[in-house]
């Protein structure tokens, strides 16, 4: 059987990043949550989730930024700081690498689409997580959730 206890500790570390992504999380503290030294933590996390903790955290921040850009009336700089990036440069670079277009282009496209697709937020959260795990090796950069859903009268 898999080492459930070990996986649960790594899961705690991942949940910490999902929950507190907006905080200035450092790797040392995240590793401590899982009961690992920094070095072993990076390896163990990658073993379980297919990407480094740093990449996971950045992907989570970009995903949360996409949500704010879709839904909130904030400037790109405000969104950048709200999701935990400390510089606009690194935010824009990472966003473009993940999504394929810049944050302002992304928002303009979402506005043209007429609002967010009727998909429950919990699924968007988990979708981006699974996609982050498989998306690293995919080329070109992964796309955003398709908004071509059918709207049947009303959203749930």
């Amino acid at each position: 059987m898999p080492d459930v206890e070990r996986l649960a500790h790594l899961r705690d570390a991942k949940d910490l990043m999902d929950r507190d992504y907006a905080e200035p999380l450092d790797l040392e503290a995240i590793a401590q949550t899982a009961g690992y030294s920094r070095f072993h933590f990076i390896r163990a996390f990658r073993g379980a989730y297919g990407q480094t903790p740093r990449d996971y955290l950045s992907a989570r921040r970009v995903e949360r930024a996409r949500e704010l850009l879709r839904n909130a009336n904030l400037t790109v700089t405000e969104v950048c700081l709200l999701v935990g990036f400390s510089s606009l440069g690194s935010f824009s670079a990472r966003f473009k690498a993940d999504v394929g277009i810049s944050p302002s282009e992304y928002r303009a496209r979402e506005v043209r689409r007429g609002g967010p697709p009727p998909i429950p937020g919990c699924f968007v959260l988990m979708w981006s997580q699974a996609n982050a795990q498989s998306g690293r090796s995919r080329a070109p950069a992964r796309s955003v959730p398709s908004a071509t859903s059918e709207r049947k009268g009303e959203t749930r």
Partner: peptide
């Protein structure tokens, strides 16, 4: 353990938590 605090969504207010095994649930 929650991995998302209550957040405003088009369909309601939603948080996300885990059970003791690790399964996640929406709380809406």
């Amino acid at each position: 353990q929650f991995l998302q605090e209550p957040a405003d969504r088009p369909y309601g207010i939603e948080a996300v938590f885990r059970d003791d095994s690790g399964n996640w649930f929406s709380l809406t």
